[in-house]
């Protein structure tokens, strides 16, 4: 079942990329989609984790939240690069507990941390996550676990 929806999605993707509707070209598209799906099935990569259709309804709210965070963090780092009002950097390496319940949540959380400039997740273990932060304020903000809660709320709750 999953591979059929995967094929349909790929074909729509192909049409958007090419923008041609002649039978010959559509045929090429069908062949390439079939080949891709065959290879993906052979490689066993179409599963719950790599093709998370069930999360797609949660995407908009998550994206809005992460965009807001990115903009905020960007402004902060820009101020520090330019050194306005004596703003300076104080790099920190901190370990904070990982509150996400499953692997997918942990990966999304780590990615979100890295996406916001000023904090980069360096290492991910089962219970903790090591973070390099540009400022103490950024490190403290992450240590409160607010972002982790927001992500669990927006991605995994109904």
């Amino acid at each position: 079942m999953k591979s059929y929806s995967f094929a349909a999605l790929l074909f729509i993707f192909w049409i958007f990329l090419s923008g041609h509707f002649e039978p010959l070209l559509l045929g090429f598209g069908v062949v390439s989609v079939a080949l891709t799906v065959f290879l993906s099935k052979r490689m066993n990569v179409i599963d719950h984790e790599s093709y998370p259709l069930h999360l797609s309804s949660k995407l908009p709210s998550f994206f809005l939240y992460i965009l807001k965070e990115i903009v905020k963090a960007n402004i902060d780092v820009v101020i520090r690069i330019l050194g306005w009002r004596g703003a300076s950097v104080s790099p920190q390496l901190v370990k904070i507990p990982l509150l996400q319940k499953n692997d997918l949540g942990a990966v999304i959380y780590a990615n979100a941390i890295t996406l916001t400039p000023g904090t980069v997740s360096i290492e991910l273990s089962d219970e903790t996550i090591t973070i390099h932060a540009l400022t103490k304020a950024a490190a403290d903000e992450l240590a409160t676990g607010r972002m982790s809660n927001e992500i669990s709320k927006r991605v995994f709750e109904k």
Binding site: I70, V71, N74, V77, V78, I81, V89, P91, T114, L115, T116, P117, G118, T119, V120, H132, L134
Partner: peptide
């Protein structure tokens, strides 16, 4: 920026916003 890890944050700006 002083070291590799801090530079990563600066590179993060150009990659995101």
């Amino acid at each position: 920026f002083p070291d590799f890890y801090s530079r990563l944050h600066a590179a993060g700006i150009t990659d995101t916003l």
